[in-house]
Design a protein around this nucleic acid. Sequence first.
DNA 1: GCGACCCA
DNA 2: TGGGTCGC
Length: 906
Amino acid sequence: MTENSTPPVVLVDGSSYLFRAYHALPPLTTSNNLPTGAIKGVTSMLRRLEQDYPGSKVVVVFDAKGKTFRHEMYEEYKANRPPMPEDLAVQIEPIHNIVKAMGLPLLIVPGVEADDVIGTLAHEATSKGIDVVVSTGDKDMAQLVSDHVTLINTMTETAMDRDGVSDKFGVAPEQIVDYLALVGDKVDNIPGVNKCGPKTAVKWLQTYENLSNLIEHSSEIKGKIGEYLREATDTLPLSRELATIRTDVELDFGLEDLTDRRQDDEALLGLFREYEFRNWIAELENADSKSPDTTDPAPVEKPEKRYSMVTDQGELDQWLERLKQAELFAFDTETTSLRYMDAEIVGLSFAIEPGEAVYVPLGHDYMGAPEQLDRDSVLGQFRPLLEDPTRKKVGQNLKYDKNVLANHGINLEGIAEDTMLESYVYNSVGSRHDMDTLAREYLNENTITYEAIAGKGAKQLSFNQIDLEQAAPYAAEDADITLRLHQTLSPKLKTTGRLEAVYREIDLPLVPVLSRMEQRGTLINASTLRQHSQELAERMSQLEEAAHEVAGEAFNLGSTKQLQAILYDKFGLRVIKKTPKGAPSTAEPVLQELAHEHELPRLIVEHRSLSKLKSTYTDTLPELIHHRTGRVHTSYHQAVTATGRLSSSEPNLQNIPIRTEEGRRIRQAFTAPEGRKLVAADYSQIELRIMAHLSGDKGLLNAFAHGEDIHRATAAEVFNVSLEEVSSDQRRSAKAINFGLIYGMSAFGLSRQLEVDRKTAQHYIDRYFERYPGVLTYMDNIRKQAHEDGFVETLFGRRLYLPDINARNKQMQQAAERTAINAPMQGTAADIIKRAMIEVDNWLRQEHPDDAIMTMQVHDELIIEVEESALDKVREGLIQRMSAAAELDVPLLVEAGVGDNWDQAH
DNA sequence: GCGACCCA
DNA sequence: TGGGTCGC
């Protein structure tokens, strides 16, 4: 075989797939009963083909309607074929249309069968030294196989070269025609030799090599079968001719007519919508088949930029008027600080039409700055517009702008769109969701970076210090880009699954809720924390002293480098794991393991965890208390995690230890003010409940319906004992299994967790799936679906794309599979608590505007600060609303406690 | 098992 | 920038 650097030409036998797809797939129909199974099957096959043969030219060939030259040759040809079923016939035209929209040449030659068109093109290609791949579901095509022609079946993903043909048929490709002539074909009504099947045909051909030689020596064949052969000698040449695929048909199409593929996305999108192939629509809008965001920026029309600056009242009046008339406008604030609690407004920018934007500077106070309009006067003029919920605004991360405006006593309403959230809902993992990234990705625009105008590092200017020559275009661009991003992203959301609803009903209405929580903040008892810090310091120095003693020398416990030297060089402890750089690891699990052999690692582990707590919480929390409010104002981030959860920073509320005494003491420092209490309510076992709901497993549903202790119930099933007999150890194991399942843990992981051997762990898992078969089915299905679609969804339709789900690297693929299992559960939990927050906030503002406020959200928990007089009512209402945030097939249990501090409220 | 934030 | 710990 010659090496050929040009990719092979791929010739697709569309007709063969048509029938196979029709029979292989369930009878899919659209909502108005249009059959689509074959359309989907063939389209899916073509898509796969494109992936498998990236640089190749592809030609798709179908049979034409009506008779062919074979009918003229032999009247009875294909006489035994049943007529095409009506529900297949109606699918042919749609398939042709999809092929065309995909930009693939579609060949239908009247009077010539697809086989012969393919044979002819294959012949043409090989004669020009181009290799050929024939994609077909029809094994008769094996006769075309040669050193330069390979057969593949894209549906079964099998390939057949020369050796493949020999293996499969027992004869060489050149003998296939003779073979087919001997065996005949019932359906095509090719006569063949009576009683001669594959085995006989192969035997004969192995002995006589070809048909004419066999006929010549037909007298040598003994027995009844010999008689049948001799009877057939008259018809065999005809049979042979019928079975022969022609390679010399006259076509008005040649390989030189192949042009570069040009897919018509619009047309294809229309067709996919018509046939309701929802899964493909999102992928189509982006060139990449799986992950919508990894595509090259589409060639976007770039409007001419008309950016201006307003420094006099007359111009401002004009803009105010235009903004009032606008159906939707983009706006952005420029401020003195990125921290929302300290930020003061330096300017405002607006955009109504793509390409046109204005900046209104209000507080640039560098030496020589031009005269600007008075800030408070301008803000006063904008106030009615900004506070009017019917005036629709679009922004990039409007939560920030809402917070900043609140610092000036303006309550931003009418948050109609947020491009950061549009991007996040559209593809949570594809990229970052800051404006520079989005502009590059969706608009093919390189925006002015903040660094470019403000400098970086210690010399970085705050916005009020930046020269207006530079600041104005930067600020105006922000508004312009935001508007255009919205125009690009909005239709994408609308046409992709249920993403529009996730965005509009969950993430967008959450913005003002989070903004209010951030602004309110939470009360922190600084003196408790300082006390705690001191105690931690004492304990740490004790540990340090002990560690130095054990080590026989003084060293910095915080330095992994010094620690490595002592553990591995000095004491020669075994190296369990290495860091990516090759140094022996001192990570926690490693030290935990080494603690069996040496005293030092245990001291280090404890020291480290105390040190972490001290530096991140007990030392830092008091510093985060805001001078103006006396409270701590966490930032909630809505566009960070892949699964839809919120994250928080300054402080990160999600990392406070939950079970340890140290963690409890940190929670004790989160307090209620005089006359108020904290109510903390959390969803009990929400992820397991979601698993029960999504899987529909009877056993799990039952256990939850009866309010059983789920870990105990699991233990009873897995260890085959009654509920009463479950030991605490068995319950602990069951709990580990339950969580392990949610995280996609392996038997290996579970065995480590439980400190049992792997076989035992595997046995537990097997028992679990035996007892809860619905869970097993669910997990298999979701894995399968992830492979097919390239994404998974939460109950509400939030999507998580898994670009690695079909990666060649097995580890990456398995990691993606674990995410596929975990994300729907974790993401659904996130959706539910977000819905609850929106409800609860709404209710509290209506019913308890002065005596209760929601202050924190941590994982599956909401915390409300409430007047003692309203305690019972608020507690009940909170539980009720959280429980009602989703209707699952299991009850959503919410547990709530009350206390003077967060720990007590548990 | 993986990811978010924080620290050195 | 990488390593660590916590969470789910």
